[in-house]
Amino acid sequence: MKFNITQPNQALKSQLEHKINHKTKPLGSLGMLEAVALQVGLIQQTLSPQLCHATMLVFAGDHGIVEAGVSPYPQAVTAQMVLNFLQGGAAINVFTKQNNMHLSVVDSGVNYKFSPSLDLIDAKVAMGTRNFLTEPAMTLAQCEQALTRAADIVDAKVAEGCNVFGFGEMGIGNTSSASCLMSVLCGLPIEECVGRGTGLDDAGLAHKTNILAQAIAHHHLISSDAMQVLATFGGFEIAMMVGAMLQAAAKQCTLLIDGFITTAALLVAAKLQPEILHYCVFTHCSDESGHKKMLDYLQVKPLLNIDLRLGEGTGAALAYPLVLASVNFLNQMASFESASVSQKI
């Protein structure tokens, strides 16, 4: 697939920095908010950026690797949680509602037939992936289909006026997919990438690590072939996040990157199109083992570190007010000149 992502034009950078630096505050005193204001201004190519129709896309899919006992929860929980999202009962519902973000839930590949009457975006590629312990999770054709369907979803949201997207996921077993993606693409031992997911005990963690090590050894993949790595170890929800992120960046939108699994999707996207990183705000550092190493690999700094490890896009939703504050201070805060305040001597 062709996603046309280029680094934002830097011609406005000095003007944006001048505007930021001449607000009524000591130089640099708003910390990371200043960096985000500069970033969003460059993304939108304006001195007065606006965040419009903020949308959280939560992609859901099931994973064949669950058959190998890598999760303490049954696969049925994926569909049950999707229904919980649609009924407004999950954490992501609370936080998106609180922060005036629109929430759209996408069936990327849940092993369940949902009623057509539900307020659910049906983009199902298949009834879950295959077990990547013994075979690729999906075909390359399915992987490309997932990217294309997700790009179409983003296009529709952009047409409605959205220019800032958060990304979330739901899928029992998807920390296993994310761990393998991270291990292969970052060239790290699987032991440094695996975490407890939804709450494995020590024995469960050891079993999960062993299974994933076997899976990686079985497929013999190299990090330079990101699409094949995604097709082999990914989930349909992860593949759709990759496509959605790529298209959102191609449309010059701001991307709010959530935790471990979402960052694994972004890692794939960055291998395919490195310039995507200019459009990403990394919202938090997850408490899931491996996430900090992934952020370090990408050489990025998250806004928050509050021990989250829920997924669903919750970290992105919680951090969105900080991104909004960055834009608002740039647009609304007085300058030394306009407020008649003396500057530093």
Results as ranks from 00 to 15, higher is better:
residue 4 N to S: 15
residue 5 I to Y: 05
residue 6 T to R: 15
residue 7 Q to I: 12
residue 8 P to K: 04
residue 9 N to K: 13
residue 13 K to S: 11
residue 17 E to Q: 15
residue 18 H to V: 01
residue 21 N to R: 09
residue 22 H to E: 13
residue 25 K to W: 06
residue 25 K to S: 08
residue 25 K to I: 01
residue 26 P to A: 15
residue 39 Q to C: 12
residue 41 G to S: 11
residue 42 L to N: 01
residue 42 L to Y: 05
residue 46 T to F: 10
residue 48 S to P: 04
residue 49 P to D: 10
residue 50 Q to D: 11
residue 50 Q to M: 14
residue 54 A to R: 02
residue 55 T to C: 14
residue 58 V to T: 15
residue 60 A to E: 05
residue 60 A to S: 12
residue 61 G to W: 01
residue 62 D to K: 06
residue 64 G to T: 03
residue 65 I to G: 01
residue 69 G to L: 08
residue 73 Y to V: 05
residue 75 Q to S: 14
residue 79 A to N: 04
residue 80 Q to P: 02
residue 81 M to C: 11
residue 82 V to E: 11
residue 85 F to E: 10
residue 87 Q to C: 10
residue 93 N to D: 10
residue 93 N to H: 09
residue 95 F to G: 01
residue 97 K to F: 06
residue 99 N to V: 00
residue 101 M to W: 05
residue 103 L to N: 10
residue 106 V to E: 10
residue 106 V to P: 00
residue 111 N to Q: 14
residue 114 F to G: 02
residue 115 S to E: 12
residue 119 D to M: 10
residue 119 D to Q: 14
residue 120 L to P: 03
residue 120 L to V: 05
residue 120 L to S: 03
residue 123 A to T: 06
residue 123 A to K: 07
residue 125 V to I: 15
residue 125 V to D: 00
residue 125 V to Y: 00
residue 128 G to S: 08
residue 128 G to N: 06
residue 129 T to R: 02
residue 131 N to L: 00
residue 133 L to I: 03
residue 135 E to T: 14
residue 136 P to E: 07
residue 138 M to Y: 03
residue 139 T to I: 07
residue 139 T to Q: 07
residue 143 C to L: 12
residue 145 Q to Y: 01
residue 149 R to N: 14
residue 151 A to F: 05
residue 152 D to I: 06
residue 154 V to S: 00
residue 158 V to Q: 04
residue 159 A to T: 10
residue 159 A to I: 04
residue 160 E to N: 07
residue 161 G to F: 03
residue 165 F to G: 04
residue 169 E to H: 04
residue 169 E to Q: 05
residue 169 E to P: 07
residue 170 M to A: 01
residue 172 I to Y: 05
residue 173 G to E: 00
residue 180 C to Q: 06
residue 181 L to R: 08
residue 181 L to H: 00
residue 181 L to E: 03
residue 181 L to N: 02
residue 187 G to A: 04
residue 192 E to Q: 15
residue 195 G to A: 10
residue 201 D to R: 11
residue 204 G to M: 02
residue 205 L to T: 09
residue 206 A to R: 11
residue 208 K to Y: 07
residue 220 H to V: 03
residue 224 S to N: 12
residue 227 M to K: 15
residue 227 M to W: 09
residue 233 F to P: 12
residue 234 G to D: 07
residue 236 F to V: 02
residue 236 F to M: 01
residue 236 F to L: 06
residue 237 E to T: 02
residue 238 I to R: 00
residue 244 A to V: 08
residue 261 I to A: 03
residue 263 T to N: 13
residue 265 A to L: 08
residue 265 A to V: 10
residue 270 A to E: 15
residue 271 K to N: 12
residue 273 Q to E: 13
residue 277 L to G: 01
residue 278 H to L: 06
residue 279 Y to H: 11
residue 280 C to V: 07
residue 285 C to H: 07
residue 286 S to T: 04
residue 287 D to Q: 14
residue 287 D to A: 15
residue 292 K to A: 13
residue 296 D to H: 12
residue 297 Y to V: 09
residue 301 K to W: 01
residue 307 D to E: 13
residue 313 G to W: 02
residue 314 T to C: 13
residue 315 G to I: 02
residue 315 G to P: 03
residue 315 G to W: 00
residue 317 A to W: 04
residue 320 Y to M: 07
residue 320 Y to V: 02
residue 322 L to N: 05
residue 325 A to S: 13
residue 328 N to S: 14
residue 328 N to F: 08
residue 330 L to Q: 05
residue 331 N to W: 09
residue 333 M to P: 09
residue 335 S to I: 04
residue 335 S to T: 15
residue 339 A to G: 09
residue 340 S to L: 14
residue 343 Q to F: 09
residue 344 K to S: 15
